[in-house]
Structures are given as structure tokens and as C-alpha cells.
């Protein structure tokens, strides 16, 4: 498993302390406002790995001071998103989740490579569950762009945070 600070940054050096910094709440003093706090996690696309994703989103949501309902919903949503993608993944594929904590919410993008160009179905019970747990959820599929004939299947999800003063 690799945890990286910043979307698309690809150091192979595991650095938990850096990701800890990335997980600081949006309200932390001295943070540049225009730099969203991001964490990227890559695991094998296997059901046994989902607890890692659940733990990461739970931690980020807690530290961003989401209310306890939203924290629990985000954990359930990540479980559901990642389970759907793992089912579509090619053998030995990775599951990548990019989490972004923003001032007014948390968004995540999860992706796997798949042989199937149709992506996750949106009429299912599972999608109904996701729609209830998040403010918005959207699937997308694009060609992997190499000669493997595979596709990158993604689910984007966002949940807003209500700030109570």
C-alpha cells in the first residue's frame, strides 16, 4: 500500500507522516486556502483491502469535523464504491482512491482497471444506497490508453459538510 500527498504525485516512498499532514482539517491555521488537502491510497483490488480505504475516509472525515452521521455515511459509501469496483477489476489490478478534503466537503475518486467497458450500473440497489449516502455520485469509463485493451473505471463521489456555528 502506498499513501501519497497530493493528487498525481508519484513518489514510491511510503510516508505516513506526510499523509498525516495532508489529513489535517481544512480550518488549520496557516494553510494556503487554494490548496486542497489530498490523500491518495493504492491497494490491491481485493475485498480484504477495503478496510484500509474505510479507515482513511473515516479519519479524514473526523479530522475535518464532519458530524458523526456524515462520518459513518462516508465510511459506508467508500465500502460500497470500492466493493463495486473490485468486482469489475482485472486480476492483479490496483484500486486507487484519491480523497480531497475541502472547506465545505469531502470528495473522492476511486478507480480500477477493467476489461469491461460498461462500468458500474446506476440502476441497482447498490447505486441507490450510494445516492442516499453521498450528495453526488457519478461513474465514468475511459480507455486505459495502452495496448492492453483495458479500461479505467471510476466512481466520483462527494459529500458536503454543514458548518454549524
Amino acid at each position: 500500500m502506498r499513501l501519497e500527498r497530493g493528487v498525481g504525485v508519484s513518489t514510491s516512498r511510503p510516508d505516513w507522516s506526510q499523509s498525516e499532514v495532508a489529513a489535517e482539517p481544512a480550518t488549520a491555521a496557516g494553510e494556503p486556502v487554494d490548496e486542497p488537502r489530498s490523500v491518495e491510497v493504492r491497494v490491491a483490488a481485493e475485498p480484504a483491502q477495503l478496510s484500509v480505504m474505510r479507515a482513511v475516509v473515516g479519519d479524514l472525515a473526523m479530522r475535518a469535523d464532519f458530524d458523526v452521521d456524515s462520518i459513518a455515511d462516508l465510511r459506508l459509501a467508500v465500502d460500497e464504491v470500492c466493493s463495486s469496483l473490485v468486482r469489475l477489476a482485472t486480476a492483479s489490478a490496483s484500486l486507487v482512491c484519491r480523497f480531497r478534503t475541502e472547506d465545505d466537503g469531502l470528495s473522492l475518486q476511486a478507480e480500477v482497471t477493467s476489461k469491461d467497458p460498461s462500468g458500474p450500473r446506476t440502476g441497482t440497489f447498490s447505486w441507490r444506497v450510494l445516492s442516499a449516502l453521498a450528495d453526488s455520485v457519478a461513474p465514468s469509463v475511459e480507455s486505459a490508453g495502452d495496448d492492453t485493451g483495458t479500461y479505467v473505471v471510476r466512481i466520483d463521489l462527494r459529500k458536503g459538510r454543514t458548518v454549524h456555528e
Binding site: M62, F66, D67, V68, D69, S70, H164
Partner: peptide, 11 residues
């Protein structure tokens, strides 16, 4: 009290 779920800081 609040009529909604509390956040960690409120707890």
C-alpha cells in the same frame, strides 16, 4: 439538544 448529529469538536 441540537436536533442533529454532533461533530467531533462538539463532542
Amino acid at each position: 439538544e441540537l436536533g442533529r448529529a454532533p461533530s467531533p469538536s462538539e463532542i
